[in-house]
Amino acid sequence: MTVSATDNKPALIRISRAGKFYGAHKVIDGMNLDIFPSEKVALIGPSGSGKSTLLRLLMTLEKLDEGEIEIDGVSMWTESMAGRKVPAGPAHLKAIRSHIGMVFQSFNLFPHMTALKNITLAPVTVLGMGKEEARQRAVELLGEVGLGHKQNAYPGQLSGGEKQRVAIARALALRPRILLFDEITSALDPETVGEVLEVLRRLAQRQDITMLLVTHQMHFAREVADRVVFMEHGKIIEDAAPGQIFGSPKQERTREFLKSVLQY
């Protein structure tokens, strides 16, 4: 799938002139990016280029300083009240977030809950799902990530790869349309990276999920992404199909970056 193939569909995520500052430092600098339903987009670039911040903005973990982000045509940070645009309230943000899930670099599993409880907590309290239904669904999800036998394990009893697979199942339990993956293999021992990537590979086949991945695994990005976005200093330098980015990048900076990370 290429960029042009999705051109005629409306964008699921529309980022326009977005800016985010930490003091005087611009982490995201006038960014424009459209992401279409069921796309799998890999974000690459040097550290500090703003990739993770972009995901955190989409998850509403950070507040946007300027510009606009729309999810399915709905503005994220403003809502209209009595015909006027006002800053988004908690209910609006909650509604927006219901489309989005996130998996973190450091897992962020709840250490005092079993794998199963980690997964059922949100469906029960957020979606109001019945406990038994939530449990069955969590068992299914754990099975899908190959951890059917670890239902009652606490995070402290799991390996890094297993924790991250539970975290993926936990994010899936809310049936998000958009899934954000923030360097999810960076904190893993090398021998457990493969099992997590395998789960991602299968997820990437699903048409009902749009994925954004921040990753340093270039080969993996090339394999599963429909589109690769190269960022630096809070700006998009190049945005193209993986074949082009990795084969014959148009921008000098992209070439230099790829050369430096693919060297070894």
Partner: peptide, 24 residues
């Protein structure tokens, strides 16, 4: 990260306090 995971799971503020933060 615990607060962030709770937000990403859309848990409300009360649920986050009661089930995620305070027990830890």
């Amino acid at each position: 990260g615990q607060w962030e995971a709770a937000l990403a799971l859309n848990l409300g503020r009360a649920v986050t306090w009661r089930t995620v933060i305070l027990p830890q």
